[in-house]
Design a protein around this nucleic acid. Structure first.
Length: 581
RNA sequence: UACCCGGUAGUGUAAUGGUAGCACAGCAGGUUUUGGUCCUGCUUGUCGAGGUUCGAAUCCUCGCCGGGUAGCCA
């Protein structure tokens, strides 16, 4: 069975496979059925995980069926769009693995063609220049339950419409004074069909066309034309455009009516956008979080933006796996964010080198270990990947262990260090706790003491003796210092936007979403880690597993000798779960 | 009280007139030099009522519930 005829995994596959079987969209030169998708962002903000779903869908479909994928900027509103956003979107789509080859396209490049088609519609009596103000237009539209009323300018002559539209283009009229509208049906139950605006007057500088135009096309008019020009077969968008589909079809049909060589008519298909628990996808609110300083920027590791995920330590592979895993449907649900976190764990478990790192250090003194001696011990780099090999880790008389790995009076089921208990120091020796030293003023434990069994070197006892606990450690004399940032959900509630009337979603912000730890003690090999960048300048930080903690990556805030690590995701912790009960 | 679209375990997603399955979460156990990984088992579901049919998650009707739509935004 060839890849192309594999079992469909969702309804869009079914549509495409039926189209392919019927050769609905023709074929490529090599004879295979044509599939051509696109991702059409407006460059007015940063991409987030919801966009990633769309990118993976569109690019994935093109790739699966041996088709093509375009990256097209839908830059038809000069008031909101900026080059900065174009650049970040290009970077994010590329990072996610989207390949548009030489087709990085801009809707603004089609302005002249769209204008000509608009004139054609005027000549066909299907479009007219309307002098109604925005407020009047709104009134004439009627309501959800009342039909609209015709504009008094609806029946202007073709000649007058052509003249007025030409003068709109030349900039003779002020912003908002006139529009070009499609003549459809003011009584349609679908409000989108009540003589929608095709062009508005905007004397604004466009990021690419400058001042060449002072009329700009509206989404409903423009979008299908862009798809048509590019030969898009399946124009995939989100569910809220469902009511717009009749208009998408109407415009292209209107252009084609009576023509001997009709333009290409793609098929619009809607799917459910992504929503994640403990998260937010609204561009406006994301911007607010950045502007008001609730996060450190668009790429704050707590943000659901693609750049945030990247800085957090997510791999493109894990984001793609997540998008494939959650599926595509026509139901607006909410995905549990643990699914995303799990996708990362899955990938990093396979590829991340293991390292020893003590986040909240507590001194462990080995009473019977010779002063000044150093043992070089072999540590496995990745138990999931034998090819990753081993490394040497220095061991000495004074170590750091995790504060939470010692308890003077252990809770039930605790099998870490406590007086009289023996545990294994990972890759090193068995040690038996002999007691601890406390600060007489505060009562805080400042040092733990133990003895080690030299016969257990490497972590196995020749006499077959077993220990229940294995803890990690770092040699105090060899440790390097680092800052570690622990992240938790930005919002403490599952659906942060779900707030009572008059209450801000900001009240759902999690005050503990960022915990910064300084003076963390890392094994010396970690000194070589970097916040690397690829040949495009895109961040690809080194990622490691700190054993028993989680997966971490190097943050670009790092400086020589002062590394900063971000926790991408913790390891599953059944002990923490058991304690919580 | 208009039109459009939806409703399957806690969450998401399959089954397209023929045994309601999968993933994640949860629970229990096994393995383990990470309380990780891995492995095994278990709990939990077709919004409701009618109808068509030998047989309905699927088709029909009527309800109920949810989402979308009244920008010169996309």
């Amino acid at each position: 069975m060839s890849e192309v005829t594999a079992t469909p995994t969702h309804f869009i596959h079914e549509i495409i496979e039926a189209d392919n079987a019927a050769r609905k969209w023709g074929t490529w030169p090599d004879g295979r059925p044509r599939v051509h998708t696109r991702f059409p962002p407006e460059p007015n903000g940063y991409l987030h995980i919801g966009h990633a779903k769309s990118i993976c869908l569109n690019f994935g479909l093109a790739k699966h069926y041996g088709g093509k994928f375009n990256l097209r900027f839908d830059d038809t509103n000069p008031c909101k769009e900026e080059q900065e956003y174009v650049d970040s979107i290009v970077e994010d789509v590329r990072w996610l693995g989207g390949d548009w080859e030489d087709r990085l396209l801009f809707a603004s490049d089609y302005f002249k063609q769209m204008y000509d088609w608009a004139c054609l519609l005027i000549k066909k009596g299907k479009a007219y220049v309307c002098d109604l103000t925005p407020e009047e237009t709104s009134k004439h539209r009627g309501s959800l339950t009342r039909p609209g009323t015709n504009s008094p300018f609806r029946d202007r002559s073709v000649a007058e419409n052509l003249d007025l539209f030409d003068r709109m283009r030349k900039g003779e009229f002020p912003d908002g004074s006139r529009t070009l509208k499609a003549k459809i049906d003011m009584a349609s139950p679908n409000l989108n069909l009540r003589d929608p605006v095709m062009y508005r007057i905007l004397h604004a500088e466009h990021h690419r066309t400058g001042n060449a135009w002072c009329i700009y096309p509206m989404y409903d008019w423009e979008h299908g034309l862009e798809d048509s020009i590019e030969g898009i077969t399946h124009s995939i968008c989100t569910l809220e455009f469902e009511n717009h589909r009749p208009l998408y079809d109407w415009f292209i049909d209107a252009i084609n009516e009576g023509e001997t060589s009709p333009i290409h008519h793609p098929q619009q298909i809607e799917f459910a956008r992504l929503a994640l628990t403990h998260s937010l996808m609204s561009k406006r609110k994301l911007l607010e979080l950045v502007k008001d300083g609730h996060v450190r920027g668009w790429d704050d590791p707590r943000m659901p933006t693609v750049s945030g995920l990247r800085r957090r330590g997510y791999t493109p592979e894990s984001v793609r796996a997540f998008c494939a895993d959650i599926g595509v449907a026509r139901f607006n649900g909410v995905i549990e964010v643990v699914r995303l976190e799990n996708a990362l764990r899955d990938h990093l478990n396979k590829i991340a080198p293991r390292r020893l790192a003590v986040l909240r250090p507590l001194k462990l003194v080995i009473e019977n270990f010779p002063e000044g001696a150093v043992e070089e011990l072999d540590a496995v780099n990745n138990p999931e990947d034998a090819a990753a090999g081993t490394r040497k880790v220095p061991f000495s008389k004074v170590l750091y262990i995790e504060r939470e790995d010692f308890a003077e009076t252990p809770p039930k089921g605790y099998f870490r260090l406590f007086p009289g208990n023996e545990v294994r120091l990972r890759y090193a020796f068995f040690v038996k706790c002999t007691g601890c030293v406390k600060d007489p003023a505060t009562g805080e434990v400042t040092e733990v003491h133990c003895t080690y069994d030299p016969a257990t070197r490497g972590g196995d006892s020749p006499d077959g003796r077993k220990v229940k606990g294995t803890i990690h450690w770092v040699s105090a004399a060899h440790a390097i210092n680092a800052e570690v940032r622990l992240y938790d959900h930005l919002f403490k509630t599952t659906e942060p936007e779900d707030v009572p009337e008059g209450v801000s979603y900001l009240t759902n912000l999690n005050p503990e979403s960022l915990v910064t730890l300084s003076g963390c003690k890392l094994e010396p090999s970690l000194a070589a880690c970097e916040a690397r960048r690829d040949s495009h300048g895109t961040l690809t930080p080194d990622r490691v597993q700190f054993e028993r903690h989680g997966y971490f990556c190097v943050d670009p805030d790092s400086k020589a000798g002062a590394l900063v690590f971000n926790r991408a995701v913790s390891l599953k912790d059944s002990w923490a779960k058991a304690k919580g009960r």
